[in-house]
Write a protein that binds this DNA or RNA. Structure first.
Lengths: 243, 243
DNA sequence: CTTGCCAAAATGTCAGACATTTAATAGGCT
DNA sequence: AGCCTATTAAATGTCTGACATTTTGGCAAG
């Protein structure tokens, strides 16, 4: 609501869309509330109406706002947000402190979906896919120490995304986008001790092994185990539920 | 590629985006191929450059095309398409003869995902959700004869969408959009005899019952059975694999 | 109290000129 | 001949101002 509290921006319409989108994702406006008018945005950010309109078009496309001629611009309820839009995932991943509720929802999705995806991957993966997963895994191993969390996270991401790709299904592959916000939230919340990193690595390894040997059931279970570890690190569940 | 073969359109930029989007989905252009220039589109459809640019912006947002200044507009490969974008689902559902490959991919996704969703629904559904599913089911029952396929399909859609909603997960709910193209393709391909309709109805009923009584495992299995029936009707697998 | 009309305010649209980026091309130098 | 560079052409991107359309609310007449 307080437009004045938003920072100035640098860059084109995409940067503006990102700024406004992230403000909306952070809950700066309540659903149903009115969004600032075009001309106010022009004035505040000192950009042309063109750029504002382009940015607002992106926000409309992601279901964050709804615009009608004469009425104005209103903020949509969370249930209307297109969480699967890659743009949205990108904005979410760049958010400093995403809504915990949202993080939990996305994680709950992963917890139910990723075992299935791993199972499909175990059935459908070709040597090239396995090589890609393996490369990401080796990357995780090498960077599994305190000073390289940045690179470790990238390899972690690549690992999971490669599994989605290995499912060889167009729809599942699209969902790989959701991984980035989920995993980025992970590092922002958890302090990876050496012990948990080692444990996490071992569990990832079991997923890789199950996919490599083509055992869907084992892959499902292994993926579930990885996510149990992740749930603990995210602070979603208390420690020590599983073995 | 042959721009001249596209029909004239009536309506605004949204209608134009729909027209072009469906042409792309129908495979009128090969991936990597060049897309007509803005001014050519303006001339051919006799609309302003604004409308063309808005339409092309939608196509860009759905990952169908990629635009770069100076270079032009090129068609993206299928793997880049945002199949989960509601706009895309809408266009797909309105397509007369969608790419069989695409239909199969979407169905394969549903076959792996929907049992999980039904299981979640069995765990999380509240009375209101169950009432909604039940209402859709009764609608299917009433319209289960030859002359009312139109309404029957709508109730069928409502049934499955209600289950996605009953999962009470923001991400899964978004995926309900994919149902429409999938189910619309179903009626275009299969001639519902009275016997298959009755069978399909019985299987849907078992899903409802499992969700109502809160049995996730049973719901998973029942959902799988519904989709096996659907696979036969879609011509994806031969008859009579299951009981 | 209701109805109808008008005015204000917001988004949507148009037209034209201009800016920027990219690719191809022609030309000159070694 | 071959390579490097400057120029040109062609496409998308941007800006600006005016105008159109839709919605809402208020005001006045019935």
């Amino acid at each position: 609501m307080p437009l004045d509290q938003l920072p100035r921006h640098h860059g084109g319409a995409d940067a503006l869309a990102r700024l406004l989108g992230q403000a909306l994702l952070a809950g700066e406006w309540q659903p149903g509330e009115a969004f600032p008018r075009e001309l106010d945005l022009c004035q505040h950010f000192d950009v042309s109406r063109n750029q504002v309109r382009n940015a607002l078009a992106s926000l409309t496309a992601t279901g964050l706002i709804e615009r009608t001629a004469g009425r104005g611009t209103r903020v949509c309820p969370i249930s209307d947000w297109h969480l699967l839009d890659p743009l949205m995932s990108d904005w979410l991943a760049g958010l400093n402190n995403p809504d915990p509720q949202l993080v939990r929802e996305i994680f709950a999705f992963r917890y139910s979906a990723e075992p299935v995806v791993a199972g499909l991957a175990a059935s459908a993966a070709e040597p090239r896919d396995i090589a890609e997963i393996d490369r990401a895994f080796q990357g995780m191993r090498i960077t599994a120490n305190a000073g390289q969390t940045e690179q470790h996270v990238e390899h972690d991401l690549a690992f999971h995304e490669a599994i989605y790709r290995a499912s060889h299904n167009l729809v599942w592959r699209q969902m790989g986008h959701l991984l980035r916000p989920s995993i980025v939230a992970l590092i922002q919340r958890s302090q990876h001790s050496v012990a948990t990193l080692d444990d996490s690595l071992r569990r990832h390894g079991r997923v890789l092994e199950a996919i490599r040997t083509g055992r869907p059931m084992a892959a499902e279970q292994a993926a579930r185990d990885v996510l149990k570890r992740t749930a603990i690190d995210l602070g979603i569940v208390a420690e020590a539920i599983d073995a």
